[in-house]
């Protein structure tokens, strides 16, 4: 399963390295969202600094949607999904590979976004360990949930509009818990202890979605 995951992740990342579609489009889009947040808050520096964690995670979710759509768009053309289905690779490995590729792209986008938040919203780091740990776990959760739902929608007529409708409510706990964890990490709430509690909730969410994806991906690939 892990070897298959590496194969699939390598394939997806190679496609991205050759096309640069994901980062060339997703990254500028996410940065534009950050700028728009600045306009929406009327450049109020203190308000932006307070709201920075939530705005950051909203931008990550917005960036995650096209990343997931892209991950399955490459399988939709030329019967690639059929090829993947008949490749003999373990479905769980395919799921984990695709989730890993999406997560890696999101992490690159997040690194740039974090710089943007620091510069544009004047955020200061108080707990780097919590910040990095919650970012890693949240990203795995977003990618896992995204790929699980992306697999459901392969071959559907209205998949572009259905994905945000299905995924956005599901990612609500991530936005909430990751925002609270980052508030602790950025020194915006009292003590990092509460932040680690939110980190635990994020880990629960990530485990639920990765386990759900691993268990159901094979059947979903066969039927959809």
């Amino acid at each position: 399963m892990w070897r298959d995951a590496l194969v699939v992740a390598g394939k997806d990342l190679r496609i991205e390295r050759r096309s640069w579609v994901g980062l060339n489009q997703v990254l500028p889009y996410a940065l534009t969202v950050l700028l728009l947040f600045g306009f929406a808050f009327d450049q109020d520096r203190s308000l932006l600094a307070q709201a920075a964690p939530g705005l950051y995670w909203l931008a990550v979710v917005f960036a995650g949607l096209p990343a997931v759509q892209r991950s399955f768009a490459v399988e939709a053309a030329d019967g690639a999904a059929d090829g993947l289905r008949m490749s003999g690779l373990e479905p769980a490995g395919i799921f984990l590979g695709k989730a890993a590729a999406v997560a890696l792209q999101l992490l690159v986008a997040q690194a740039v976004l974090a710089g943007g938040v620091a510069v544009l919203f004047h955020s200061r780091l108080a707990g780097p360990g919590l910040l990095v740990a919650s970012a890693l776990v949240s990203t795995a959760g977003v990618a896992g949930a995204g790929v699980a739902y992306g697999a459901l929608l392969v071959g559907l007529r209205a998949r572009e509009t259905l994905l945000p409708l299905l995924l956005a409510p599901v990612l609500a706990p991530v936005v909430l818990a990751a925002t609270q964890a980052w508030r602790s990490a950025l020194g915006l709430s009292a003590g990092p202890g509460g932040g680690w509690r939110w980190f635990g909730l994020l880990a629960c969410f990530t485990v639920v979605y990765l386990a759900g994806g691993v268990l159901s991906f094979g059947a979903l690939m066969e039927e959809t």
């Binding site: 949930a145 699980a148 739902y149 459901l152 299905l166 409510p169 599901v170 609500a172 706990p173 909430l176 818990a177 609270q180 509690r197 939110w198 909730l201 629960c204 969410f205 639920v208 979605y209 759900g212 159901s216 059947a219 979903l220 039927e223 959809t224």
Partner: peptide
């Protein structure tokens, strides 16, 4: 199949959501 998987994941998300919103 697709809707059953979504419904089960929905139910699990509700549990996580419950704790998230209660702590919040």
């Amino acid at each position: 199949l697709a809707s059953s998987v979504v419904a089960v994941l929905m139910a699990l998300t509700v549990v996580v959501d419950h704790y998230a919103t209660s702590w919040w």
